[in-house]
Design a protein around this nucleic acid. Sequence first.
RNA 1: GUCCCCGUAGCUCAGGUGGAUAGAGCGACUGCCUCCUAAGCAGUAGGCCGCAGGUUCGAGUCCUGCCGGGGACACCA
Length: 581
Amino acid sequence: MPSRRPVRPHRGRPTPRPPTDSMQDALLKALESAVSNLGVPAGEIRLERPKDADHGDFTTNVAMTLARPLGRSPRDIAQDIRSALDGVSGLSRVEVAGPGFLNFYLDADTVGDVLRRIRKRGDEYGRSDVGHGAAIMVEFVSANPTGPLHLGHGRQAALGDGIAALLEWTGWVVHREFYFNDAGKQMEKLAHSIWVRYQQALGEEASLPDDAYQGAYIQELADSFRAEHGDGFRGDDSAEVLRKMERHAVAVLRAEQVRDLEGFGVHFDEWFRESSLYDDGRVDATVEALGATGLTYEEDGALWLKTTEFGDQKDRVMRKSDGSATYFLPDVAYHLTKWERGFTHVINVQGSDHHGTVDRVRAGLQALGKPPGYPEYVLHQMVTVERGGQEVRFSKRAGSYATMGELVEQVGVDVARYFFLMRRPEAHLSFDLDVALDQSDKNPVYKVQYAHARMCSIFARAAEAGILATNAEADPSLLTDGAERELLNQLAEFPELVERAARDRAPHVVCDYLERTAGMVNSWYHGGNPSRNPELAVLVDDPALRAARLALADGIRIVLRNGLGLLGVSSPERMDRRVDE
RNA sequence: GUCCCCGUAGCUCAGGUGGAUAGAGCGACUGCCUCCUAAGCAGUAGGCCGCAGGUUCGAGUCCUGCCGGGGACACCA
C-alpha cells in the first residue's frame, strides 16, 4: 500500500451558513433590480458558471427568458440590463453574446477572492447549511445475515455513506441505519442448509434442496458450528438444534459483515433487527392499524390491503392463509418506526431489483396517514467486474458472485470506494480491474490523489528552501494566467457543487468535479516545470507572485482534500508506489 | 403482457432547472522528454446523442410511439 496519512472524513457537525461568494450575491441583486425595472415579474434569475472560460466568470440567460413576456428581442433586453449594471464593483465588463446571454467578467482580485474564503474556512470549505440541522435517516446495505456481502453491497455501502456525507456537508444531521431480516423463511433455509452440511460431515445421508444456500461459506459455518458444539447432533433435526445453528450462523455472518464494512470505513449508527418488530408486537399492531382503516379485506383465507388505492399495481397480501405475515407487513411496521423515531426525511438506498417494493411500502404507509412520497428511494444498478475487457468472477468462496471483501482486498479501500461512486446510481457499474490496479494518473483516484500530493510537495519544497508559505499575505490579483484564473473559478464552484450533489443524492457529481479539477491542477503544475517554464513555477523568485501561487496551491490542496474526504477517500501527502504486486 | 432503469466517440461513462461549438478517461495516432515537479508531457483523429414524430426562439435534456439491453411483476425476502 502507498504510505499515506489517512484523513478521516469530516462528519456530523452542522455548521452555520458560510460566508458566501459576495460577488455572486451582489451581481444577483443588481440583476434583480435591473430586471424589475423592465416591467415584468422576473422568475428566479439563474447566475451560472459558464463551461467555456471565454464566456466570462458568470453568465445568465435571463434576457432570453424575458423575451416572450416582453415581446422584445433577447439581445435588446440584454443590452438594457447591461446598461443598468454600471457601477457594480468587482465587475470589469459585461458582454451580450450569442442569442442573448449576458456574460460577466470580473476583476482579477474579485476572482482571486475565493482563495481568502477557502483558506479562512479550511476543512470546512464546501459546507453549507441548507439542511438547517434537520434529522434525516439513510438506510443502506441492509443485507440479510445469510451470506457474505457481495459487490452490490459494496456499491451500496459506498453510495449510502457518500449520500450521508453529502447530507452532512449540507447541514443535515444524518442517521445511518442497517436493517436486517433475521426473521422468516430465509432464516429457516439458512439453518437447514447448515444442518445438511453438518450431517454430511458426520457421514450421514443428507442432501441440499435446490433452494438452499449453496456457497462454500455454508460448509465453513457447519464446520465452525461443529468445532464449537461438537458432533452430538447426528440426525437430530429438532427445532432446538436448528435454532442453535441459525444463531451460530447469524452471529458469524453478521460479524463478517461488520468487519467488511468497518474495513471499508463505513459505520452505522443503528443496526435494526426485523425480529425485534415481532418481539415488541409492532407487526401485530400494524395489522390492527391497517385493519382499522377499512382498506383491508379477506380473500382465499389471506388478509389483503388495498394498496391499489394508492397507486400500486395490485393489492398485496399482508397475512398469508397459514397465518404468517408476508415481508410486506414488517416492512411497513419498520418504516412506521422510522417515522415515529422522528425521521420525517428518510432515504432508502437499495438495489433496483427491489423497485417493485417501493409502491407497496409507500401505499401501506399512506394508508396509515403518512405522506405520499415517504420514504425516498435511491435505487442502484448492478456491479460487474472486468479485466482485459472480459467479465471476471473471482470468488472461490461465495459461489457465483464476488464478495466485497475480496475486491477491497485487491484494490484497496480508496479505489474501491471511488470506483463504486463514480457512476450514477441508476447506471450499471462496470468495475474495470485493469484501471483500478493501475497506479498512474490513468486511474481517476490516483489522478486526484496525485494532484493533491503534488500541491503538498510544493509546500515541502518551499519549506526546504526556507520559504514560509501559509502565513504570507497573498495578493491573488497577481494570478492572471489563464490556467490560474480557470482554477480559481473551479475552486469557487465547489460549495455549490456539493449542494447540488447532495440535493440530487449524487456522489458521482463530486467525482466528476474532482477529476476535472485534478486535470486542471496537473496541467497547471506541469506547465510550471522549472526546467521548461521556470517563470510559471509556483516557487518563482518574485516573492509576491510566489506567495499568490502558493495561496492557489493551498486552496487546491484544501478543496481536493475536502472533496476526497467527503467521498471517504484519503488524501495522501505523498504517493509512494506500491511494488507488492 | 404490465411497470421501472438504461441506450451519448472503438470501450467505460459525464453531460445542472431545456441554452452558446456535446465532454472526460481508456484505447488509437503524431510529436516531445529521459533534464525536472510524481512512474510521463503536449497535441490530433474519432459523434445522425438508439429510431421516428411532437413541444420550444432553442432539445442529448421535456412529451408520445417504436426498437434494443437489464431488472421487477408469488399467500418468496
